[in-house]
Design a protein around this nucleic acid. Sequence first.
DNA 1: CCTTAAACCGACCCTGGAGTTTGTTGGTTT
DNA 2: AAACCAACAAACTCCAGGGTCGGTTTAAGG
Lengths: 205, 205
Amino acid sequence: MEKNLKSRVTINRLCYKGLDIFTKKGYYNTNLDDILKELELSKGAFYHHFKSKEDFFIHIVQSLIVQKVYALLIEPLNTHEDPMPIILDSIEKALEPNKGNEMVYGFMLADFLTEFSKRNEEISRYLKDVVQMWEVNLVSLLKKGKVDGYIARHLDCEGVAAYIIASFMGVRTLMADKNASQTKYLYLQQLKHYFNSLKPQPEYI
Amino acid sequence: MEKNLKSRVTINRLCYKGLDIFTKKGYYNTNLDDILKELELSKGAFYHHFKSKEDFFIHIVQSLIVQKVYALLIEPLNTHEDPMPIILDSIEKALEPNKGNEMVYGFMLADFLTEFSKRNEEISRYLKDVVQMWEVNLVSLLKKGKVDGYIARHLDCEGVAAYIIASFMGVRTLMADKNASQTKYLYLQQLKHYFNSLKPQPEYI
DNA sequence: CCTTAAACCGACCCTGGAGTTTGTTGGTTT
DNA sequence: AAACCAACAAACTCCAGGGTCGGTTTAAGG
């Protein structure tokens, strides 16, 4: 195989497997050998491509995680319909178990944020950027929804977005150690309920 | 000082300081010397009273954390008034910065849950028990609220409780690495809004 | 006092895991 | 085909941090 191609293949294998295992076991609870053993690679290979474990993870964030967030949570927001069903649907999809990985309920962003917030400021910043990207897009969709009459005019779009994000992060925490699909179901029901309350109220006098 | 008393004093100092530092820096990111140095105690003292770091933490959970959760989130629920303002108020108080520790926004349960969920099943169980204690009490208060006509009859109390807990956990995550008091404010506004939507609707026909 | 044991000290041990180094192989270039 | 270098192997270094252990201090009882 061509050198350059082989290199990219190895880097890709490392990143995918890394994200997979980091998601399941957490960053600090995973050692490099856990990843390398499964790929039948050596320390030498790893440190040939990345200068540290931290560097490796940042690479994962900026390629795979950003891409996932974009595909699952941001791209779907690009619409002119009623925002609420769209948001609800994207969140529901983001909470679905990864295909092939039963029990790993989608979306690791929240878990990583918590893991790094007290331990590694640099990585935290990268993760926060991703969240903010989501937040900005949510807010802008909500504002558009207001203009289009889907959302009550008096609502604070930043507040709604923050609330959506907070509840999403939190349900991930709960799903990690309870009956996940049940928790998810209850959560989505109430989120829908909350969304309903954001509609413009018909005026009864 | 009497031996038995001195022993209890030392154990108490260890636990309080331990919870303090664990809360700020996280369990795995704190080493025993961090705690012992501040108290001017030695490894010997520590291992005289606790058989391991893990044992130490479990002790903290079962004494201090349970007590805090109870005082902040459960005891206030013991009321016959409208549940929603009560719950809102208890959550608001639980999110207040700790006195003396600027920037440590109350309530560490959520952070610890995430930290341990992938690393230590035993400690996770102890923490989950605490959350469940909260959940059970929330549900029972909500059900009472239904009977008393404060909450719409068609609502799923378990769902509402799960949703409250999830959003609470999540906002803690967000507060850890954004403008905390602003995030808190936005969150509480929306929580209030959600609570309003749970009231029985007057019947317009 | 004098003994005993609880409370505590602090040097040491030991393991896990990140990162380094030295060596090997096989593709690429001239 | 000879030289060269990217891609990898694997043994090694190094150190943070949990846990141990023999020794020392202190308070309680005879």
